[in-house]
Amino acid sequence: MTINTDLLNKATAFIWHEADLLDHKEYQDWLSLWSKDGLYIVPTDNNETDYENTLNLALDDADMRRMRVARLESGESVSAGSVSGTVRMISRLRILEETADYIVVRCAMTLNELRHGNLVSYPADLEYRLKPSADGFVIDRKVVKLMHADGFLRTVSFIF
């Protein structure tokens, strides 16, 4: 088996960059990483593929992403103010699909959140569809498959 390590490195660098923006709440820069029709999806059922016709925890188009960021940055959300921070580790990256128009990357994430002094951990599979752009990639789709998506979660006032 041959692995295209050059492509894998480029994708990894991009996904780590995104992760760093989110952990450091550089949300405006994060918004600029997306394609116009890109979707940020956190399903309630990880076996589901028809996200538009099922209930998700989040299914954000560009408008909803902008509003989600505005809510977190506004100072109006008391729960957002109680998140002391997140640290996410991303590893186990694999290119699942490579076409002229896009690549699909799957990776593992563990996000740790500190809120009111309590650490909460969110293990998840991430699936990205990335489109090549002039300076790297744009995100065309990001699906966050939380391991406990169908369980009783804590509320989330940050971005996976």
């Binding site: 956190v42 809510r71 959300s77 804590r154 509320t155 006032s157």
Partner: peptide, 9 residues
């Protein structure tokens, strides 16, 4: 829900 704009608050 846990990621809505209302419930977490």
């Amino acid at each position: 829900g846990p990621m809505g704009f209302g419930t977490p608050d």
